[in-house]
């Protein structure tokens, strides 16, 4: 609720930080997460085993437990706009240890999918999309590597889309089906403006 201060900085500084349970929550959020992540995230009882297992936790403000909490409460915006969302290395230690048999990593993956729908995504992910669209590889071949391959008695191009580029249009068709390239191009170009 805006307070009507004439100074936007003050409005921001003193914004209402209460959790009101209804106004800022999206009850569909948890359902979407459970559908995408294929894990019963609503059963989280916040024991913190996930954060305790997390290699990113001790070196950052990233708390996977907190994302689980946001999932349960439906705090969609708070979750998707938090840059810590992208600090999960997807090591799945949390998933193996969760006593409620939830896969918190898959909750993070689901949240990232939902963030992407809102155009929230780090640039490196988009660049990988562009590379795969173009070559079929996220990490494509290069000249130094081709030379090394030849020295090893391998062909310069591996037996992949690199050697058989005729498979690339099929890959592009799949990516286009989901508008991946278009979206990646758009977001990247917007970022450059």
């Amino acid at each position: 609720m805006a307070k009507g201060y004439n100074d936007p900085a003050m409005e921001e500084k003193f914004q209402d930080r209460y959790f009101h349970a209804t106004t800022e929550t999206n009850p569909e959020f948890i359902k979407e997460i459970e559908r995408l992540g294929r894990t019963h995230a609503h059963m989280c009882f916040q024991c913190g085993t996930c954060t305790g297992s997390c290699p990113s936790a001790p070196r950052s403000s990233y708390r996977i437990r907190k994302f689980m909490r946001r999932a349960v409460l439906g705090l969609e915006k708070e979750a998707l706009t938090d840059p810590d969302l992208w600090l999960c290395t997807t090591c799945y230690s949390c998933a193996d240890r969760c006593p409620r048999d939830i896969a918190p990593t898959d909750v993070i993956m689901a949240m990232r999918n939902l963030a992407f729908k809102e155009d929230i995504v780090p640039r490196n992910f988009l660049k990988t999309i562009q590379l795969i669209y173009k070559t079929g590889h996220g990490v494509p071949n290069n000249d130094a590597n081709r030379a090394a391959r030849l020295k090893l008695g391998l062909e310069a191009e591996p037996e992949t889309t690199h050697k058989y580029p005729e498979f690339i249009p099929g890959i592009q068709k799949i990516l286009d089906h989901y508008d991946m390239k278009e979206t990646a191009d758009r977001i990247l170009s917007e970022g450059e403006q």
Partner: peptide, 12 residues
């Protein structure tokens, strides 16, 4: 306080 969220709570 939702101590797990670290936020004050006002639920109607």
């Amino acid at each position: 306080e939702d101590t797990l969220l670290g936020r004050p709570v006002d639920i109607e």
